[in-house]
Amino acid sequence: MLSMDVILVTILAAGALSIIGIVVGLILLGIDRRISARMQARIGPPLRQPFIDLKKLLSKENIIPENAIPSLFNAAPIVALASSIVVLLYLPIGSMMPILGGYGDLILVMYLLAVPALAMVAGGFASGSPYATVGAQREMVSMIAYELPLASIVIAVAWLLYSSGIADPFALSSIVANPIWSLVGPIGMVGLFVLLLTFAWVSPAELSKIPFDTPEAETELAGGVLVEYSGKNLGLFTIAQGVKTLVMGGLAVAIFFPWNLSPLLGLAGYAALAVDAVFFFAKVILLMILSVTVIRTGLARFRITHVVTLFWVWFGVAGLFGLSLVILDSVLAGWF
């Protein structure tokens, strides 16, 4: 059905976006390290430090432990990276609509977001190290934990779009086209704000950052799921981490801050695309600093039991509360 041209353009665009995604993701890691260092009164590494690290990691050999299952052990980083990049292709970058937008929606993105974590779990179990096993168990538990608040956010957004009579409420393109803040009244605003805060706390968990880095916990598990990884495999995980950071930021931007600069500046065509893309990345960086860097620098690590309680009880309730406010708002809007 699709013409050759469309497929070719899609592949080219996907390739280009993957490379941009990897580069921006690594820059994001660099910014995170730099800002975090400044918060701790250190000078911090140069912004290109993740690239230097990556270059070194990729030039080193993979060490596969004797107890490991080599196939699974080696596949895990590739799956993690591939799935993070695929999520990126489903995200709208500024005014550019998602490349794979026609083939999936927010639900699929949610599933894909779980894949890198699952890959890490598989890789951890395949490492054959007690630290990695404990880390993998914790990764599974925390994955289950933060899914609930994340799901309530997605449902709230979809409900909002659906109740406003917008077709295809789960598609990211329609979410971006209709900024959710414009669809609600004051009560819904409060609800959305609660959901935004919830999302800000889910992001560090999704990215396994302090205080939710129990699966990797350096001081207790010596790196946990990643303990046996070295060389190229660790490099791939690093890239995946960068892309995932970008994806989480991009998702937050798409859901909560989808506005673009080009209509304001009166631009069109490629100029608009470029300006919006830059604006998009700026928004992502700002959001990541606020939700990842500040939280990871200002808190101590939680126990895994705390992570579960926090997400199931506190943020679970917060998510559901936000969701009910949004629903209440749209019901009230229907009445009056």
Binding site: M39, Q40, R42, T219, T297, A300
Partner: peptide
Amino acid sequence: AAHELGFDTLFYLAWR
């Protein structure tokens, strides 16, 4: 102690 708790910021502060 702060470092063992995963609280590196406090660790840097205390050592500073």
